[in-house]
Nucleic acid binder design. Structure first.
Lengths: 339, 339
DNA sequence: TTGAAAGCGCTAACAC
DNA sequence: GTGTTAGCGCTTTCAA
C-alpha cells in the first residue's frame, strides 16, 4: 500500500496525503479527516526508504558495545537506550567482541545507514579510522577514556582517583603488601588505576614489589589464573583487581588454595556490578556509575543531533567513582548492604 | 558523493556505474577498471535509501530481547548475532524491558524499517499483534515458548523435564518438603516447571503443600523477599527456584536467617548462568543452552529468509536441559567444577 | 558494451 | 486548500 493508492482511495492528490502526514495543519479539517480514515483503515505507513531519501534523519543511533555479555557495558547501553527511547529514537546495538576489525566494520555500516549519531564505548579505534564518521558529519560521543581519540565529546570516570582511594583504604586497614591484578581492558582506565596505585604506595612510603603486579584477561577465569600464578611467587596481604570479575576469580583461587578472604588475603574489585553484593564474602569495590555514563553520553549526543546547526564545541564529563566498603577488604566496621 | 558524480568523473553514464556495482560482468574490463578506480578514490558507497527503494532486502534482522541486563537473554542474543554476522547481516537489538507495549512499538518499528527477519524472545505478544508482521511477510522465529503464538517457527527448551529431573534428584537425595519459587517470567517456561514439580511429587507420593509455593519477580531481590516470606510460614528441606537469580536471592535470605545452605535448606536454580559456579555454595542448577538456542533460532530464520520463495512450513526445535549438580543441593558425591 | 529514461515512494516548491 | 511536478539516488529495461 503506497501513498498513491491512499490518495486515490481518498479522492485527493498524493501531495495532500503527504501533507496530512507531515503538516496536517495545512489541510482542511474535512479532507484531513477523510484521509486519516483511509490511512487508518489501510494501516498505511510511509515507506521508510522513500522518507529517508527525502529527509535527512533516520531517528536511529548506533551504540558500539565492547562485549554483549559483560553486564557493565550493557548497563551503560541501557542508559543510552533509555534516553534514546524517550527521544523516540531506535538504537542499533552492535557488539564488537573487543575486536577492532569488527568495530571498524560496524562503524562503516552505521555511517552507511545514515544513523543520526554514534556512541563509542571504550573504543579501540584510532583517530584515523574515525575519519569516515567525521566526513559523514555524524555526531559522536565517546564513553570511556581513549587517548587515540581526541577531538570528540566524551564521558569518563575518574578511575585514577577511585583506585587511589581504595588503595589508601587498604593501607589504612593495615595492609602493606598489596597486589594489583591488571585486566587487559579497558586499556586506559586500568592504566589510570595503576597510576593511582603506584602513587599512593609511594606517598605512603611503601616499596613497590613487581611480583605483586600481574596482568590478566578481564574475566573471572583471568582473575583466577593470574591469582594462582601470583600467589605461588609471593603472598600479598591484599589484592586490588581492576574489575569485579577479576576479583571473583581471585577469590575463587584463594579459596582453592585454602586461604580465607579477607582474613588471610583481602580482595577488592572495581565496578560494583550486580553480583558484587552476592558473592561470599561480599565484595568491597569501587562503584562506577555505569547507567549514568550512558545517560550523560546520550544526552550530549542528542544535544549535538538537535542543534547540528550550532558550531559544535566538544563537551567532556568526568564522573567520580565511589567506594563501596563491604566484607572482602577486611574492614572492621564494614557496612552491610543487602542490595 | 553520488552515482552521478562518479559517472561524470569516469566519463560514463550512471547506468554503467550502477552496473559495475551490481553486475560487473556486464561491463568492459577497461571501463570497469576506470570506474572502480574512481569509486575507490572517492570512497563512494551507494546511498542506503536509494538502494532500499529498489531492492527488497535490508540485510538487517531485528532481535527483541526481554531485558538487556539479564545475562541469559543476552547469551541467546549473542548466538543470534554470531550467525547474523557470518551472513553479513546487521542486527537491531531491541530491549523491551518486559513491557508488552514497548514490544509492540519495537515490532512496528522493525516492520516499518523493512528488516528481513525478526526474532522474538520469550515474547508476550498475542497472536493478533503479530498480524502486522505476517502482513508484511517478514519471517519470524520465536525463541522461548509462547502459547499465544502458534503458527510460527520456534526454538524451545524442555523446562518441564528439566524441572522434573531436578525435583526427582532432590527427592533422591532425601528431601521431602520441597519449596517452589515461581518467577513471573518467562511465563510459559515457569508454568512448565511447575507441572514437572507437581508431577514428580505426585508420582513420589509426596503431598503438595501450598505454603511451599511462592510467586516472585524473576530477580535476586524477588527471590530474597519471597524466601523470607516463605520461611516464616514453614521451613522446607529444599527450595527449587525457577531461575538462578531467584536462587541467589533465596540463598541470601536463608543465610540472613542463620540457616546453612545446603545443610539446613538445599537450593537449586534454573539456567546455569555465568555466576552459578561462583556463588557460595556453588549452585546446583539446570543448564539451559542459551547460546545454542540463539544459534538455532537464527539458522531457522535465515533459512526462511534465503528461500522466501519456498512455501514455508514452520519448524520447531526442542532442546533438552541438563542438570548441573554442585554443592547447593546437598548431594553427597557432588561434582566440583571450576568453570 | 553502453546510454537514455522510467520508476521505486515520498516530500515540498510552486501554481492555481 | 489543493494539485502538479521536480527531484531525492539508485536500478533496470529497452534501444542503440
Amino acid at each position: 500500500m503506497n501513498i498513491k493508492q491512499i490518495a486515490e482511495a481518498a479522492g485527493v492528490s498524493v501531495a495532500t496525503v503527504s501533507r496530512v502526514l507531515n503538516h496536517p495543519e495545512n489541510v482542511a479539517p474535512a479532507t484531513r479527516a477523510r484521509i486519516e480514515k483511509v490511512i487508518k483503515e489501510a494501516e498505511y505507513t510511509p515507506n521508510w526508504f522513500a522518507q529517508g531519501l527525502n529527509f535527512n534523519t533516520t531517528k536511529t543511533i548506533g551504540v558500539l558495545v565492547p562485549h554483549m555479555l559483560t553486564g557493565m557495558y550493557m548497563e551503560i547501553a541501557n542508559g543510552v537506550e533509555e534516553v534514546a527511547r524517550v527521544k523516540d529514537y531506535i538504537t542499533f546495538m552492535c557488539s564488537v567482541e573487543k575486536d577492532p576489525a569488527m568495530e571498524k566494520r560496524y562503524i562503516e555500516q552505521l555511517v552507511h545507514r545514515r544513523v543520526d549519531g554514534i556512541i563509542l564505548m571504550f573504543s579501540a579505534m584510532e583517530k584515523s579510522y574515525l575519519r569516515i564518521v567525521e566526513d559523514a558529519k555524524i555526531p559522536v560521543v565517546i564513553i570511556g577514556e581513549n587517548k587515540e581519540n581526541p577531538g570528540f565529546s566524551s564521558v569518563k570516570v575518574d578511575c585514577r582517583s577511585g583506585a587511589a582511594q581504595m588503595i589508601a583504604h587498604l593501607i589504612e586497614v593495615g595492609h602493606r603488601r598489596i597486589g594489583f591484578l591488571w585486566g587487559h581492558d579497558p586499556q586506559q582506565e586500568t592504566a589510570d588505576m595503576y597510576a593511582g596505585y603506584t602513587n599512593v604506595l609511594r606517598a605512603s612510603g611503601i616499596r613497590m614489589d613487581k611480583r605483586l603486579v600481574a596482568e590478566t584477561e578481564n574475566s573471572i577465569e583471568g582473575g583466577y589464573i593470574a591469582t594462582k600464578r601470583l600467589i605461588t611467587e609471593t603472598l600479598p596481604d591484599a589484592i586490588f583487581a581492576t574489575s569485579d570479575e577479576i576479583a571473583y576469580g581471585a577469590i575463587d583461587a584463594l579459596k582453592d588454595r585454602g586461604l580465607r578472604v579477607p582474613e588471610d588475603v583481602a580482595v577488592t574489585g572495581f565496578g560494583n556490578e550486580r553480583m558484587a553484593n552476592h558473592v561470599e564474602p561480599k565484595l568491597t569495590t569501587v562503584e562506577i556509575p555505569f547507567r549514568k555514563m550512558g545517560i550523560y553520553g546520550a544526552r550530549i549526543l542528542f544535544d549535538m543531533i538537535d542543534d547540528s546547526s550550532k558550531e559544535k564545541e566538544n563537551r567532556h564529563i568526568m564522573l567520580q567513582a565511589r567506594m563501596r566498603i563491604r566484607k572482602s577488604c577486611g574492614h572492621k566496621e564494614r557496612i552491610g548492604e543487602m542490595f
